[in-house]
Design a protein around this nucleic acid. Sequence first.
DNA 1: GTTTATGCAAAACCTTTGCATTTTG
DNA 2: CAAAATGCAAAGGTTTTGCATAAAC
Lengths: 165, 165
Amino acid sequence: MKTNPDRIEEQIGHFRKVLRKAGVKLTHQRLVIFREVARSGDHPDAITIHRHILKKIPTVSLDTVYRTLWLLADLGLITTLGPPHGGARFDANMHSHHHFICTNCGLAHDFYSEEFDQLTVPASVGTLGTVNKRQVELRGLCSKCARKKKQSICQESEQGGVDHG
Amino acid sequence: MKTNPDRIEEQIGHFRKVLRKAGVKLTHQRLVIFREVARSGDHPDAITIHRHILKKIPTVSLDTVYRTLWLLADLGLITTLGPPHGGARFDANMHSHHHFICTNCGLAHDFYSEEFDQLTVPASVGTLGTVNKRQVELRGLCSKCARKKKQSICQESEQGGVDHG
DNA sequence: GTTTATGCAAAACCTTTGCATTTTG
DNA sequence: CAAAATGCAAAGGTTTTGCATAAAC
């Protein structure tokens, strides 16, 4: 489960297959961008990825990086951290709680669970730093978006829709 | 544990105390902004908060909302969802995994736990939507930032420092 | 009264979009 | 060769900053 070279090549095989199946062209840029995200274990943002890609393809543009990343996300080859795109979101609930997050519209709903509050921090995490807060993120499709998707298309929702070209 | 009026007034009492203790002025704007974040259970972004505040203080500016939100976060009165500010972050690790997130520098490190992979989704969440992914977020200070804080100030770090005035 | 916060305007970002050119299948 | 992706440049958003005015202690 590490980002070792063998695993990355395995992932790239899958990447090629998914692109072909989706009828999407396999360009050099797309391959290098995907490899970069797969290689780096620290969940970089678009600009960090662009900086790294520039060393391999000096002419690549930032907007290609963005377009590719959202394409890969749409194809299910990568995911994003936190709520789907948009600005910082704030939370005044300082009690131990957890979140259900809709990966389509960004809805974030609190819920409570004594079981989740008491999760034991794995020993391996101790070497990374000090844990102040344990929070479970359950990600999926909220009922509203599920309904809309069923009807036809999920284009609008309370917190803003999702659409990357 | 709901955002009912009583609980909010209780939170506001705490809010006043923390501001006084920190030697920070208690302005009308700050009070209204804090109350708005406390009131809304859906973790709004700055612009959504601003829109709501405008109904109560028609002259409030968006930059005051931002300044206030980050101030409240620094005072520990509110938190942010996901990695601390910055753009979208990408993850090519499609295996079930979990994150340690440094709330200071934004470092996000994967770790694995069979126990965490198998968390039982509470029944109450079923009404919100369909869960595709369960992911635990352990939040705290990474060892690098802890070291820097100890030395003097944590001003710089790999993924960008934190400093809101 | 002094210090601090606000509002304004402008700047600095990050992200997306339209279009001519290049590349892929 | 047709269809699609890239790079460029420009626009669209969001977030931050400097400074005069206004408000809190």
